[in-house]
Design a protein around this nucleic acid. Structure first.
Lengths: 342, 342
DNA sequence: CTGAAAGCGCTTACAG
DNA sequence: CTGAAAGCGCTTACAG
């Protein structure tokens, strides 16, 4: 069962062919294809008919070479595939991006990179004029390459940049501190007084802001802020952080967790140890991902509009590519979703 | 904070510039760039030095237009983003694909589609000569578009096609029936006699084969094969299938589940109902995904080499694109990983 | 082993 | 509103 592939691709019709069929010049066909308003309506119809008849699809390479536009957008994710795919937050973001791009002529190029930096090949690709713009999701403090990229092509970031002073970024985010504060306030209102947090990576701005929200709210209420453990947004890391916190103070009665995946890990440890949720310990997550309702005890969590965030990233990038003015910061609203865990 | 983006992209060096710097013709530079062996060593060095000095990166569009190759590969996933991202199996597949592509000049274009069929835009894109080849992961019975695509460009499928007679596919898979048989045999060896299965979607070949493996093994042992419930590979669907099975026969003592995610859902229902695993009910999953060890009771499961499968898909596609002969079927081995659930 | 020349399929000033 | 012409940056026979 060995065989070589024999593609029988019929030569695709060109602009030339359409022009001949419609009885006009290539220039005119090009104008119609690109939606110019400078063409006589009757001619537009004739050209469109020819396009339809020949099933003409413009050659991207030729178009790109002539116009200096690639019509491609890179989606850069500085994460291991396992982490990227393991988190429903990214699923929603990507869904939003693809949805917003559907009605455009742009295609999406996925670039998985390591946390620290893209490969040389990826860098060359991105800097080499192969995409018109980029969306960077989940960037860490140590990825300085993005400053370089940002200076070369329009880039929209998911999440407030770690070093905003380094480059003038466009980004889409929520008010992480405010969301965390609301979650923490909820724990206090529930009568909790020994409130821990499972924080996210220390090299990303969003989780840092969430920790700040937790800290300030507790501080304002005269409650200690010593119970903090870090995870990396994975379920497993949430579990081990929860173990650490319980070992440090078995009497803790509330936890604000910086992501739903980590909260689910924390819940499994609490169950494992026979600690009632929310009876003995109240738990609030962050994201409101689909996973939040898949647990035994449904998760109370801070909702962030992930799909909308993805859509907004793409829309803002599209606007930049058009040359339209765009808000540097797009801050979308969060809200507390109260379920069973707190 | 409104601003338009001002890209200050310096004009990139062209072949022409490199040729001038190296004191040779464009043809020669082109040959060096493309690794021709027909160039005098000394000249090769001079050209490479010029490339290095000028930081030259070939223009993809020009190259593509002249050579009729796009150097792009489409990754087509006929699934909702939520399902695609929710399953660690896909994470491993994508990881394998990107790893195999790293050392090539190809880039990956992600095309999320609905289960039934890609959008008109995506179809035109794929059929319009914008990619040199495609990898299709998780295809369902009703996606006839892929036959058309397969007739146009080289395509490698993940998983045995549903209608193999329709088109002569290249595919990478495991022996699903054999894996399922091994799992079922293990349950019998553990003394289980009332063995159910949570099957996958009925419109995909892999889960169908797994069900067959379960069925044949039970039949061969004179055990009834009436306890079957279907899920869609998601955790939630595994949970409800488990509920259904328990309602139908509370005395069932073993379950073979066609994916780890569904098995995890099943485990949560068993725990919810206070049924001991593996004391009262033994559970075997399929995949050996990272999630298999994230549960309270570690999952016994059929290992399939997901990352290798992804790599193989990409390698086979690359070979097809080179015109090299390729095995139509690449069947990778499975193995039973015995942990705590059975 | 190397170069001059044609050509890939578009876009875009430039005239009219 | 429309067309002729140049040009985007490469590859690839064709000569030599």
């Amino acid at each position: 069962m060995i065989a070589a592939h024999h593609a029988t691709r019929r030569a695709a019709p060109t602009l030339e062919a359409v022009a001949a069929a419609a009885g006009v010049s290539r220039s005119t066909v090009s104008r119609v294809v690109n939606g110019s308003t400078q063409v006589r309506p009757g001619v537009v119809d004739a050209v469109n008919a020819a396009i339809e008849k020949l099933d003409y699809v413009p050659n991207r390479a030729a178009r790109s070479l002539a116009s200096r536009h690639t019509m491609a957008i890179a989606l850069i994710v500085p994460e291991e595939a396992a982490r990227f795919f393991g988190d429903p937050f990214f699923a929603a973001i990507v869904q939003g991006i693809t949805r917003a791009l559907e009605s455009s002529d742009y295609v999406l190029n996925l670039q998985l990179a390591s946390r620290t930096s893209p490969s040389v090949k990826t860098k060359k690709y991105l800097l080499g004029g192969n995409v018109d713009g980029a969306i960077v999701v989940s960037h860490h403090s140590d990825t300085e390459f993005f400053s370089e990229l940002d200076a070369t092509i329009p880039v929209v970031f998911g999440g407030r940049p770690f070093h905003p002073e380094q480059h003038s970024n466009y980004f889409v985010d929520v008010d992480n501190a405010a969301g965390a504060a609301q979650a923490t306030r909820h724990l206090i209102d529930r009568g909790r007084r020994r409130i821990a947090t499972i924080a996210g990576p220390a090299d990303m701005q969003a989780p840092i802001d969430r920790t700040t929200g937790w800290q300030d709210t507790l501080g304002g209420a005269g409650i200690a802020t010593d119970l903090i453990a870090h995870g990396d947004f994975t379920l497993a890391s949430g579990a081990s952080a929860m173990r650490e916190l319980l070992d440090r103070d078995p009497r803790l009665d509330g936890v604000f967790v910086a992501s739903d995946m980590m909260a689910i890990g924390a819940l499994s440890v609490l169950r494992e140890r026979g600690i009632a949720v929310p009876g003995q310990v109240s738990v609030v997550g962050f994201d409101d991902s689909p996973a939040a309702t898949s647990t035994d005890v449904k998760l109370t969590t801070v909702h962030q509009p992930s799909t909308e965030m993805g859509m907004r990233m793409a829309q803002n990038l599209l606007a930049l590519l058009r040359g339209d003015p765009v808000e540097r910061e797009s801050i979308l609203p969060t809200s507390l979703v109260v379920r069973d865990s707190a």
